[in-house]
């Protein structure tokens, strides 16, 4: 015979057990870090991803839902290098969560532990939205991802020591697969070596550096400034002296400018996923690279 008290106690017990076995609560600023946490923590983590590949991470607002999720997070993984400067400080200030404050193991800005390219020698806002710490779109650097994985595993172990063996095993497995994939991408992407491209914003600089593509110019006249017709005409003029073979934009950017230019230059305009989830194929970090490389290769055929 079950009395209401029994039912209550049973419910409480279930609730308490759920709490005790609650997964590590991880807040990630963008999908690439969500994917990396999935690789390293698997079912040990419950992951919240603050943005999608259809959003410009630089222009996100400190939405109420972000504050709510930051409130309960054990670990926050963001890019850093000022990419999230317009919203993450507000989210962290409002959340009342000491675990994700600067200097705590629960706050990881990946860009601060990996080498960055395109670090400006001097910064001035007259140059557009330049990042003093260099190009923050580090998710396209295989070396950067490998380093990020090592640091992320270290943080996971610090925050959740009970899972050490699992994190280590997963890291070893990820690193092995990542290294193999990196070699494969270098092989598959070999035809892209030296190919001259124009990209909308410098989203793919790390990928171009890895594969040896030559970045001739950007559709943006200055970082963060939308393409202007004057600048596009200038790009058409430059084509005569320094021809490009691909015009590339990220999944969250308007196709207008790249398609206009593609028509005038008679070269393909190509959309690449800005991060995981930006295309049907880009379902995780591995397929993100696969998809980008295959899209470029087939556009050149």
């Amino acid at each position: 015979m079950k009395t209401p008290i029994d039912v209550l106690m049973a419910t409480l017990l279930v609730f308490v057990t759920t709490l005790a076995h609650a997964a590590l609560d991880v807040f990630t600023c963008s999908p690439e870090w969500g994917s990396l946490v999935t690789e390293l923590a698997g079912p040990r983590a419950s992951i919240f991803v603050a943005t999608t590949a259809l959003q410009d991470v630089h222009r996100i607002q400190a939405r109420p839902s972000l504050i709510a999720h930051a409130r309960t997070a054990d670990l926050v993984v963001c890019t850093g290098a000022d990419l999230e400067v317009g919203w993450m400080p507000m989210v962290r200030n409002q959340a009342g969560n000491e675990r994700i404050q600067a200097g705590k193991p629960g706050f990881l800005e990946v860009a601060s532990i990996v080498p960055r390219i395109e670090v400006p020698a001097s910064v001035d806002r007259a140059l557009g939205d330049v990042h003093p710490m260099g190009n923050p779109h580090i998710q396209f650097g295989p070396k950067q991802i490998r380093l990020a994985a090592g640091e992320l595993a270290r943080r996971l172990i610090r925050i959740d020591p009970a899972g050490e063996v699992e994190y280590q095993t997963r890291l070893a497995d990820f690193t092995r697969r990542w290294d193999a994939a990196t070699q494969r991408w270098a092989r598959e992407g070999a035809p892209l070596q030296g190919v001259a491209v124009i990209q909308h914003h410098k989203n793919f600089s790390y990928l171009f550096e890895f594969l040896g593509l030559r970045q001739v110019n950007s559709l943006e006249p200055k970082p963060g400034v939308e393409p202007t017709s004057a600048h596009l005409r200038e790009l058409v003029e430059n084509q005569k002296s320094d021809p490009v073979r691909l015009i590339i934009r990220a999944s969250y950017q308007s196709p207008d400018a790249s398609e206009w230019l593609a028509q005038h230059l008679s070269v393909p305009a190509l959309m690449l996923p800005a991060t995981v989830g930006g295309s049907e194929g880009a379902t995780n970090l591995f397929t993100l690279f696969d998809d980008c490389i295959h899209r470029m290769l087939s556009a050149l055929k």
Partner: peptide
């Protein structure tokens, strides 16, 4: 596996040093 973790860590700190 353990060694690999510390290797990755070493690399991370090497990168730090590099930067």
């Amino acid at each position: 596996a353990k060694a690999q973790v510390s290797a990755a860590q070493a690399e991370a700190s090497a990168a730090k040093a590099e930067t």
